[in-house]
């Protein structure tokens, strides 16, 4: 029982990270109907930014700030910086292609992905860095229910992921930009006729999408996984899968898909085999696509030629 509980906690933490990445895919897809292949690499940039902020604040052990404040600054700087990068990518790689065929932005995104990955390799070298979280957040901190322990890093990540998701749904539902974003997702032409500044909304969408990816990247670093230029590919793929499983374009779908994927991955790793975890996730994707082609939360797509 305790083993299952522990796997569930781990799965939810991982799922929170996946959900944040999936949200980025879904937001962009909702507005532009393009799959942002470069999203995984944006996540990588976010993780690197967090790492460099940590170094700038004195490194893992010698920081002059209290730990919560340091973590807050890491998240804030990384999210804002990466968000700006998202805006820049949209401006130069996607905006010129807004009126072209469907496949052109996909290829362009593939190009941006290769560019980001190799630029990171050039600038930061191929070494794998580590946030070294355990030296400033002792792993003994945390609480346990029965035999299940939730250490403080996992707790931080879980709480932050849910706070960010909550903030996002408030933003989408309550603000002017969020409303405009939903309007564009429903009918772009009508939205433009209603006087919505489409460029501004798309800028915001890319900013938020990239910022969420950056948060996921910093969380990944805090969870003591290595930071390197090639780290974005697999989480990007998983986030993408989570978005498809939940129903691409749907925000609650992306959250649910991410959490589900995290739990499934953690359980299969715990009970079946660590080596073949991607294979089981792939089976889940196939099953969802066969049984519910539009995802768990997706609406039936109406194709306009």
């Amino acid at each position: 029982m305790s083993y299952l509980g522990q796997q569930l906690v781990n799965g939810l933490t991982l799922g929170g990270v996946y959900a944040l990445i999936a949200l980025g895919y879904s937001l962009v897809y909702g507005v532009l109907q393009i799959l942002n292949f470069a999203h995984g690499d944006v996540y990588m940039v976010g993780a690197f930014l967090g790492y460099f902020v940590e170094l700038a604040l004195g490194g893992p052990t010698k920081s002059f700030l209290p730990v919560p404040l340091m973590i807050f600054i890491m998240f804030a700087v990384s999210m804002i910086g990466t968000g700006l990068l998202g805006i820049i990518i949209e401006r130069f790689a996607y905006r010129p292609l807004r009126k072209s065929s469907r496949i052109a932005p996909l290829i362009s995104a593939l190009g941006v992905s290769i560019l980001l990955q190799n630029a990171a390799q050039l600038l930061f070298s191929a070494n794998i860095r580590s946030y070294d979280t355990s030296s400033f957040i002792p792993s003994t901190l945390g609480f346990s229910i029965g035999d299940v322990t939730v250490d403080s890093v996992r707790l931080t990540v879980l709480i932050l992921a849910f706070v960010l998701m909550f903030a996002l749904s408030r933003w989408v539902n309550k603000t002017q930009v969020g409303r405009a974003m939903r309007a564009i997702a429903v009918d772009r032409d009508a939205a433009v006729m209603m006087g919505i500044d489409i460029d501004k909304v798309i800028r915001w969408t890319f900013f938020v999408s990239a910022a969420l990816a950056a948060a996921a990247g910093v969380m990944n670093g805090l969870l003591l996984r290595g930071v390197s230029s090639g780290m974005g590919f697999v989480p990007g793929l998983k986030g993408f899968t989570a978005a498809v499983i939940g129903g691409i374009g749907s925000i609650p779908g992306a959250m649910a898909g991410g959490l589900l994927l995290g739990v499934v991955e953690s359980l299969t790793q715990g009970y079946l085999s660590t080596n073949f975890s991607d294979f089981y996730t792939f089976l889940l994707l196939i099953a969802v696509m066969l049984l519910r082609p539009n995802g768990l939360f997706g609406k039936k797509a109406i194709v306009k030629a």
């Binding site: 799959l35 469907r102 793929l237 993408f240 498809v244 080596n275 696509m289 066969l290």
Partner: peptide
């Protein structure tokens, strides 16, 4: 098969994942 009724985007994700799974299967 799973993406037969769907658009390019879905085929892209299934095939990309297939590539990843292939590599993992071979390595493991």
């Amino acid at each position: 098969l799973p993406s037969r009724r769907l658009f390019g985007d879905y085929l892209a994700i299934v095939t990309l994942f297939f590539g990843q799974v292939f590599i993992q299967l071979i390595i493991s």
